[in-house]
Design a protein around this nucleic acid. Structure first.
Lengths: 260, 260
DNA sequence: AAACAAGTATCATAATATAATACTTCGCCA
DNA sequence: TGGCGAAGTATTATATTATGATACTTGTTT
């Protein structure tokens, strides 16, 4: 794309284009034809033909013989499997997250910071919920999530300020906070309390509470989060019934804490 | 690799090599240096340098600035996220799997057939368990799993026979059944009963029971599975306490069944 | 049945991936 | 501390190979 990359002899354009084909698939584009791929990637029809064909032969894309449309293959799931083994936090956290979800009987998630987004790494749904809330790998703007705010609350003040100013925001519900000073206030509250609570940010009637998972330096890179329905919970009830176990779990996961 | 692919003008070698770099990572190789990548892929050092660098720039590989080693990035998780949206079975199954796991209080999985393997698509762990058993995307030889056998049990007799004969087997525990006639017998039992039970196949002291998720033609392509500890369960208790709900769930998920 | 759109195949051309090599940095052991 | 060796990084001439225009085939629509 940018000239720097193209000029660089250490950059393999064909590979980058292949990845662009893979990235053409998303939540709303789960099955794409050749021409749709060409349109979405901005690549030449012939190029897409060759790239998609290669990805198909290599098992990265399934092809419906009837419609000739491409879909993500099981290999996309396997990539997550390999990721899990590569992330030491997951192995450390999993047993405690399971315990927590059993104890609370409510949906428990773990999220990691990924640029200015958080990404859900582990999800243990306990209640029927909106599909997107039960699937790993989802990325959301960190500023709009309790997990992101909990993580940010462990950063030095200047970094917090920079993040609140610059990190992206996107409206997901009519009540998503788009006012950055409000977000700053929420984060400062999290700094004081050691946890973050949010409401109606991503889904209506969803309340979430998150506690940071801190490294030895006190800086968080992940958070344990619990989301509940506002129909059956209040902020106060959450603080009384969820917060203690949530915080214990986050602390137990934090590297530096004693083993099991 | 094979000459057919290389000769084909519709095959982009550079992309295939890039994928080979990605596939160099697995459970036991979660972090690789340039030279290790070259060794594992069989590619030239310079080629790996260019490919890995491209994957890094495109956000597919993280690079530890200190050790210069590459690791799978969060993008690997996002691929799973996109996969989930592309697989209609997942959306259909998720709420019922959650319900089932809550009802049973035991680990519930959904697996799909993928060649001669099954792949875990959804996992709802309820008890502390071995890490690999709590992570999606794991592929296991279908013949050695209750899910695989349950799926196979819905196939016509000749296909069952061919699978039992040809599909791969791998020893995972001292008790993994390596005798194909024993496996054939287990599958015939599943044909009669409509579900499959297995024991000690992948993990010692693990018992599993699986019911097929069938298409309108009666042929299964996935299964709901429940795994429990042999310390607290017997085959009989499983049949009494787990099977009914498990089968109801599998049937409810099967396309053609009435909605919700 | 005709017309069109989408998928597939072919090919000359030039762009670009290649791999040899040289350079730099890092870690190890004397 | 200093020097050796291995690993990572950068450069370049060469020819492999990706490109995209074009022609062909299929199958869908009106």
């Amino acid at each position: 794309m940018s000239t720097e990359k193209r000029q660089n002899t250490l950059f393999v354009g064909a590979l980058a284009k292949g990845l662009r084909v893979l990235r053409a698939f998303d939540e709303t584009h789960t099955e794409l034809s050749l021409t749709e791929l060409a349109a979405r990637t901005g690549l030449d029809k012939s190029a897409v033909q060759r790239l998609a064909n290669t990805l198909h032969l290599e098992g990265m894309l399934d092809k419906d013989p009837a419609t000739r449309r491409f879909r993500p293959s099981h290999a996309w799931l396997q990539m997550a499997y390999v990721y899990y083994w590569s992330d030491p936090l997951v192995a450390r956290a999993m047993p405690r997250l399971i315990e927590l979800s059993q104890q609370l009987g409510e949906t428990v998630n773990m999220a990691e910071l990924s640029g200015d987004h958080i990404i859900y790494v582990s999800r243990l749904p306990c209640k029927r919920t909106h599909f997107a809330a039960s699937v790993v790998g989802r990325r959301l703007p960190a500023l709009s999530t309790s997990a992101g705010r909990a993580i940010l609350s462990t950063f030095p003040a200047d970094e917090r300020a920079a993040a609140v100013e610059q990190w992206m925001l996107a409206r997901h519900t009519p009540h998503t906070t788009m006012d950055r000073s409000e977000i700053a206030a929420a984060i400062e509250e999290a700094v004081q309390q050691g946890y973050a609570v949010s409401r109606d940010q991503m889904i209506l009637n969803e309340m979430a509470i998150a506690a940071p998972i801190c490294g030895p330096d006190g800086r968080a890179f992940a958070a344990v989060q619990c989301s509940v329905s506002a129909h059956s919970w209040t902020a106060d009830k959450i603080r009384r019934n969820i917060l203690p176990a949530l915080q214990d779990t986050a602390n137990a996961i934090s590297p530096g804490a004693s083993r099991s």
